[in-house]
Amino acid sequence: MKPVNLISRLATFRRAIALCALFGPLSMVQAADTDHRGEPRLERISYTSSLDKTERDFFLYLPRGYNPKSDKKWPVILFLHGNGERGNGKDELDYVLIHGPVYEAWIQKKDLPFIIISPQLHMFDMDKRGISYIDNRSPAQIPERLTEGVPPREPFFATPQPMSGDAAQVDMSLIPPLLPEGWDKVEEDLLSIIDTVQSRYRTDKNRLYLTGLSYGGFGSWWLASQHPDRFAAIAPVVGWGHPSYIGPIAKHQIPVWQFAGGRDQTVPIQYFYPGLNRLEQLGHPQVRFTTHEDMGHDAWRRVYRSDDFYHWLLDQSR
Rank of each mutant, 00 (worst) to 15 (best):
Q316R: 11
V303D: 11
D308C: 01
Y103A: 05
I142P: 02
S199C: 08
D184Q: 15
A32M: 13
L276K: 04
R15K: 15
R37C: 13
D94K: 12
L223Y: 11
Q265C: 08
T211G: 03
S46R: 15
P152G: 02
C20H: 14
I175D: 10
P180T: 07
G87T: 06
N5P: 02
I175S: 03
D91T: 11
A158I: 10
A18K: 13
S118G: 06
E187P: 03
A18F: 12
V237G: 02
F156A: 08
Q253G: 01
I116D: 00
P40R: 00
P176N: 10
V303L: 12
P274F: 06
E293I: 03
I193G: 00
K69M: 12
P243Y: 02
P236S: 04
S70V: 01
R230M: 11
P119W: 03
L78Y: 01
E104G: 01
K90W: 09
W222E: 10
P274N: 02
L276V: 07
L313N: 01
R56I: 06
L26K: 14
D298W: 07
I193Y: 03
F289C: 03
G87K: 05
R305C: 07
R44D: 02
G100C: 04
Y304T: 01
F231I: 02
Y209L: 02
V186G: 00
P152D: 06
P3H: 09
R37E: 12
P155A: 01
Q169K: 09
E43N: 05
H81I: 04
S50D: 12
P155R: 04
G24A: 05
T159P: 08
E55A: 09
Y201Q: 03
V96A: 08
A16M: 10
L178N: 15
W183Y: 10
L314S: 09
F231S: 00
P113I: 05
E154A: 13
Y61V: 00
